[in-house]
Simulated scan of single mutants.
Amino acid sequence: MQESFTTYYQSPVGLLQIAGTPHFISEVKFIDEQHKVSPVDSGPLPAMAIQAVEQFIEYFHGQRRFFELPISQEGTPFQQKVWAELMNIPFGKTISYLELSHRLGDPKVIRAAAAANGKNNVAIIVPCHRVIGANNQLVGYAGGLPRKKWLLQFENKIAHGVQTLF
């Protein structure tokens, strides 16, 4: 069995739980305030954990537009295809769920693509927050719509010098 780690990073949009192995990141999720985090002293963190936290610090300081971390999350072949496509959405840009389904090669898979987007376990690194609804509507985000709005406005400001998107 591979060694795994869990660490935390206090981001501007809340506490992030980062989990993985010495070889990849498998989870980044938001921890709500009411969730109690008890420190676990399991010795020194692997280099992968330190690298992930450093890249999040750079991202939230506007110095990183994409993550250079190996990731691995379990999912169906279709989910893997959706998550791979999410990685192609540039920093500071958004696409609609319909455009995502077109990029996947079939506009009829819009609901399945949205469902797969919602199953992403590696928030921010796999930028599911960059997918929005029709007519630029802010819809669906496991971390909550206020966080999605913040992330999109933050990226837009860094990429384009624009203050508001929504």
Rank of each mutant, 00 (worst) to 15 (best):
S96R: 08
Q73I: 09
A116D: 12
A123S: 15
F24C: 05
T7V: 08
V37K: 15
I31K: 04
E3N: 06
D32G: 00
E74R: 08
K108T: 07
S26Y: 02
M48V: 03
H102L: 05
S11T: 12
P39I: 08
V162P: 03
P44I: 10
I132E: 00
L16Y: 12
S11V: 05
P44G: 11
P146Q: 08
P107Y: 14
K148V: 05
A47S: 13
M48T: 02
S42C: 06
I110S: 01
A112Y: 01
P46A: 00
M1W: 01
L98S: 04
F154P: 00
L152S: 00
F91K: 05
S96Q: 09
S101P: 00
D32P: 00
P90K: 14
V139W: 06
V28E: 08
Y141I: 03
L104S: 07
H160S: 00
R130V: 11
E54S: 06
S11H: 11
F78D: 12
A159R: 13
K119D: 06
V28A: 01
Q63T: 03
I31V: 14
H35R: 11
Q2P: 15
R111E: 07
K81S: 15
L69T: 00
G62V: 10
E54T: 07
H61Q: 09
N121Q: 15
Q63I: 00
A49C: 10
R103D: 02
H35T: 09
I125G: 00
I132T: 05
A115I: 02
F24D: 14
N135K: 15
F56S: 04
D106M: 07
T6A: 05
N120G: 04
A84F: 06
V82Q: 10
A84M: 09
P12G: 02
G118T: 02
I89H: 08
I71C: 09
